[in-house]
């Protein structure tokens, strides 16, 4: 880049072009939504099958699949950190949001267990899924995630009318609409943007 004097018009063009270059640098967030989306979706369907269809007592054991998600997230996070040479505010906010969400899920599970609420917990979880994707959609400027968050909130209220077993299916639907479908759409958008 030359160091000669340049006009105010060229200054503005340069600023615009540099800012748009940082936009191309957004990291791929859809992979986390896909992994966590599919894992929890399979877990909800699996738990429903084990409990409702097979009447297996320890149906909740299916949630051990969360361990795969945690290991994957740590591994992928470290890999992304090595690759990324500019840390954007979006990435910073996203990692804080989802770390906070993870802790909140843990705290919520503790509260539910301690209070002995047992079977009435899924509406709270579905509500939390909605919060995570609604805020993420805003950070990433991606409407399908915002819509997915709203759908999850509606399903959270709706799930209070059905039994525990069917709450699992509504939770799976919430995951489908707020994580999985928007994640595939996000992946497609990023692919087009990076071309």
């Amino acid at each position: 880049m030359a160091e000669e004097k340049f006009s105010p018009e060229q200054s503005l063009q340069l600023i615009q072009s540099m800012i748009s270059r940082t936009k191309q640098n957004m990291s791929d967030n859809s992979i986390y939504f896909l992994i966590w989306g599919w894992l929890t979706f399979i877990a909800f369907i699996g738990q429903f099958m084990l409990k409702h269809v097979l009447q297996y007592e320890k149906h909740y054991m299916v949630w051990l699949v969360v361990i795969i998600g945690i290991i994957f997230s740590i591994y992928q996070g470290k890999k992304d950190e090595k690759k990324v040479r500019a840390k954007s505010w979006v990435d910073e906010n996203m990692s804080h949001l989802w770390l906070g969400m993870g802790i909140s899920f843990f705290v919520l599970s503790m509260i539910i267990t301690r209070m002995g609420w047992g079977t009435e917990m899924y509406p709270f979880f579905i509500m939390m899924y909605g919060l995570g994707t609604f805020v993420s959609g805003n950070f990433l400027q991606f409407r399908p995630l915002i819509t997915g968050g709203i759908i999850a909130w509606v399903l959270a209220i709706g799930s209070t009318w059905v039994s525990y077993d069917y709450q699992m299916l509504l939770a799976a639907a919430a995951i489908l609409f707020s994580y999985i479908i928007p994640a595939y759409m996000l992946r497609r958008r990023d692919k087009i943007n990076n071309q």
């Binding site: 160091e3 340069l14 540099m18 800012i19 940082t22 640098n25 040479r85 954007s88």
Partner: peptide, 22 residues
């Protein structure tokens, strides 16, 4: 008001931090 310095500042204004290589 120098091309390269303005380019650097314009890049840094939209990110939290960036490596020299970036």
């Amino acid at each position: 008001h120098s091309q390269l310095r303005l380019a650097v500042i314009s890049l840094l204004i939209s990110v939290k931090e960036a490596e020299f290589t970036f």
